[in-house]
């Protein structure tokens, strides 16, 4: 029932202009005396208003770098960002630092992984929320305070009047993440980037935070980019999923398609590596073998080839292109693979 309603509402959305268009985004880190490292190359995706897009991959695949590049938060020196990130008609990557500062928090906001270290330990929670409103909405501290209280209430913090005056160390992990979400939502941004928002939390709290994010996004028509390595999060939240490997998108699909019929061997490996409750006792887990350190350079091979069970000769000699493939009801399916998993599998 809910599936049909979200689908119809999304159909209406797809006709609109995308909120964010990322085109050919590449980030290269340079260090003197070392080969330049391509953390992200040629990443393109769209985010519609109200849509939730997942960026999935293991550590070091470039998902956090992608988000930091869009936010303009990468360090000034030692890296080159190319491509476009067009947000409502303006390329965020071409804005001056000052213009970007005015947009961050107002139009685009971000939630980080570790809620304790992402909060200022010496400033009360309420002050940290009002600070953002004062900055972007020109409110005085007095005007902002009732709004902050409302906001804390909205993100599910009980007794907000008291919590406003408390310091981060006085809050539990889940509360801290809620406070961080409240800060990010303070100015009702149209795009929210969540960088592994549940990694530092225990499982029951994870579920609460994800539900909260889902509700907030649906209520306010905010677009959400969800960065995660946790496919469970993807299954519960994302409309469209981009799987990243070695700084490139290797597969894109609607979440239903992705879970039902993964085509890229890496996606398949990620799904197969999830331990299942109904598997036979004593059965071994199925990790993706090897590590990112085994990667081949993308220029003349598939980076995943050394770890891939489906690898053929071509995988080690030519780079696979990201191509449109059959299937995909709403989201066109894209795949970067010479020898994909067959559809029946």
């Amino acid at each position: 029932m809910t599936a049909t309603t979200t689908r119809t509402s999304r159909d209406a959305r797809t006709s609109r202009e995308p909120l964010l268009q990322v085109r050919d985004l590449s980030v290269t880190f340079r260090r003197s005396g070392e080969e330049p490292f391509h953390a992200v190359s040629g990443v393109s995706f769209d985010v519609q208003p109200g849509q939730t897009v997942g960026l999935v991959g293991e550590s070091g695949c470039g998902k956090s770098v992608t988000s930091l590049a869009i936010m303009g938060l990468l360090p000034k020196r030692g890296n080159t960002v190319t491509g476009e990130a067009v947000f409502e008609g303006t390329d965020l990557l071409k804005l001056s630092p000052k213009q970007m500062r005015d947009r961050r928090g107002r139009d685009v906001a971000m939630i980080f992984q570790d809620p304790l270290s992402s909060l200022n330990p010496v400033v009360p929670i309420g002050r940290q929320v009002t600070e953002v409103m004062e900055r972007h909405q020109g409110l005085s501290r007095k005007e902002a305070e009732p709004k902050a209280r409302e906001l804390l209430d909205k993100v599910g913090i009980p007794d907000p009047s008291r919590r406003l005056k408390e310091y981060p160390h006085q809050l539990s992990g889940g509360m801290r993440q809620r406070a961080l979400i409240a800060m990010a939502l303070a100015c009702a941004p149209r795009l929210l980037i969540a960088d592994e928002p549940t990694t530092a939390l225990d499982v029951t709290i994870q579920a609460q935070i994800l539900t909260l994010l889902k509700d907030l996004v649906q209520d306010s028509d905010t677009a959400l980019i969800m960065i995660t390595h946790d496919l469970g999060v993807v299954a519960g939240l994302c409309d469209e999923v981009n799987v990243l490997y070695g700084g490139r998108i290797v597969e894109r699909a609607d979440r239903h398609d992705l879970f039902a019929r993964p085509r890229h061997p890496y996606t398949h490996g990620l799904l197969a590596s999830i331990p299942r409750l109904d598997s036979a006792r004593g059965e071994r887990l199925n990790p993706v073998p090897g590590s990112v350190a085994d990667n081949l350079p993308w220029d003349h091979a598939c980076a995943f080839a050394p770890r891939c069970s489906n690898a053929v000769e071509a995988c080690r000699t030519t780079q696979p292109e990201l191509e449109r493939i059959e299937g995909g009801v709403e989201t066109p399916r894209l795949l970067r693979c010479h020898n994909p998993i067959s559809e029946e599998a």
């Binding site: 936010m71 938060l73 500062r101 005015d102 947009r103 961050r104 928090g105 107002r106 906001a109 971000m110 980080f112 992402s118 909060l119 200022n120 600070e131 953002v132 900055r135 972007h136 961080l180 800060m183 990010a184 303070a186």
Partner: peptide
């Protein structure tokens, strides 16, 4: 970093 991500001056 979190404060910067919110555009704090």
């Amino acid at each position: 970093l979190a404060a910067r991500s919110l555009g704090v001056k």
